[in-house]
Amino acid sequence: MRKELAASSPNNPLQLYYGAYTYANMAAAFVVETERWDSANELFEPLQTLTKANSSAGATGQTKPPQPENGAIQADLMSLQTLPIFVRGLAAAKQGSAADDKSIAELQTIAKQYSGTQEPALAQALKRLEIQRLEIAAAKSASKDDFNQAIATMKQATALEASLSPPLGPPELIKPSHELFGEILLQAKRPKQAAEQFATSLRRHENRARSLLGTARAAAQNGNTQVAANTYAQLVRQWQQADAQLPELREAQNYSNRSGAR
């Protein structure tokens, strides 16, 4: 994809945008799924390079890109703008960096550009953008151990996601809000409530690894050893081709081995 982006031409803006959109989703998913927060800036660098090389296309710039009549395409273009901002902001919040405020402000600026839209696809995209903003804010609060504020913010985010239709494939939100809520509740040492959020996430995103991992951790902390063992064993089977040194895989294997789960 990096090679494809480097060879892209501004003569076909929509083709350029879709190439960038595909890459942005790949990079965002990788950072969020692996939690390799340090890699966020590096992985999105090709999009910044593309923006400079094809400034007329405005693929990831802060200015509003050309708007086609198709609302679904407009929504995709909005996602292209917001994905790098969101992932960088979430990474900053997770690392305790003040850069998260900049990302929140940038997301708010983009939202204002599309405010008042009556187009259904764009309205849904604006909801996802607001969820992204709330997730960064909640992660920031959690990093400062302000869990009451983080929980209040995530309640807003999950209520917004609940108003969206469950995805037919991979999550439309790179970080499902119920999953992040569960992780924050684990940080706050509220494993019972965390388990409820992970259960909701798994109803919307069946067999999602990060939600299964959260379910196993919450069960272990709740003393539900059988549920924890079974869920960790499921992860081991699901990740049988994963890198052997993946910390989450080793965590699941160690628990399964101790409990004798199959």
Results as ranks from 00 to 15, higher is better:
Glu33Arg: 12
Glu33Phe: 07
Glu33Gln: 14
Thr34Ala: 11
Thr34Ser: 15
Glu35Tyr: 03
Arg36Leu: 08
Asp38Lys: 14
Ser39Trp: 14
Ser39Ile: 13
Asn41Leu: 08
Asn41Gly: 08
Glu45Thr: 04
Glu45Ala: 14
Gln48Leu: 10
Gln48Tyr: 12
Gln48Glu: 15
Thr49Ile: 13
Thr49Leu: 15
Thr51Lys: 12
Thr51Asp: 14
Lys52Val: 13
Ala53Lys: 14
Ala53Gln: 13
Ala53Glu: 14
Asn54Ile: 02
Ser55Glu: 13
Ser55His: 05
Ala57Glu: 07
Gly58Asp: 15
Gly58Met: 09
Thr60Glu: 05
Thr60Lys: 01
Gly61Lys: 07
Gln62Phe: 04
Lys64Trp: 12
Pro65Lys: 05
Pro65Phe: 01
Pro65Ile: 04
Gln67Cys: 03
Pro68Trp: 05
Glu69Val: 08
Asn70Gly: 00
Asn70Thr: 08
Asn70Cys: 10
Gly71Phe: 01
Ala72Phe: 09
Ala72Lys: 10
Gln74Tyr: 03
Ala75Leu: 06
Ala75Arg: 03
Asp76Ser: 13
Asp76Lys: 11
Leu77Phe: 11
Leu77Ile: 12
Leu77Asn: 07
Met78His: 07
Ser79Arg: 14
Ser79Gln: 11
Thr82Val: 07
Leu83Gln: 09
Leu83Val: 00
Phe86His: 06
Val87Tyr: 00
Val87His: 01
Arg88Gln: 11
Gly89Val: 03
Gly89Phe: 02
Gly89Tyr: 03
Ala91Val: 04
Ala91Thr: 07
Ala91Leu: 03
Ala91Asp: 08
Ala92Lys: 04
Ala92Val: 04
Ala92Gln: 07
Ala92Cys: 08
Ala92Ile: 04
Ala92Thr: 01
Lys94Pro: 06
Gln95Val: 06
Gln95Pro: 00
Gln95Cys: 00
Gly96Val: 07
Gly96Arg: 06
Ser97Arg: 09
Ser97Tyr: 02
Ser97Met: 00
Ser97Val: 06
Ala98Gly: 08
Ala99Trp: 01
Asp101Ile: 09
Asp101Ala: 13
Lys102Arg: 13
Ile104Val: 12
Ile104Ala: 09
Ile104Gly: 07
Ile104His: 06
Ala105Ser: 12
Ala105His: 11
Ala105Glu: 13
Ala105Leu: 12
Thr109Pro: 05
Ala111Gln: 15
Gln113Thr: 08
Gln113Trp: 03
Tyr114Met: 02
Ser115Tyr: 12
Thr117Asn: 06
Thr117Ala: 03
Gln118Glu: 14
Glu119Asp: 15
Pro120Ala: 11
Pro120Trp: 10
Ala121Ile: 06
Ala121Leu: 11
Ala121Pro: 02
Ala121Met: 11
Leu122Val: 15
Gln124Phe: 07
Gln124Glu: 15
Gln124Gly: 11
Ala125Ile: 02
Leu126His: 08
Leu126Ile: 09
Lys127Thr: 15
Lys127Cys: 01
Lys127His: 04
Leu129Thr: 05
Glu130Ile: 01
Ile131Ser: 05
Ile131Met: 02
Arg133Leu: 02
Leu134Asp: 00
Leu134Met: 04
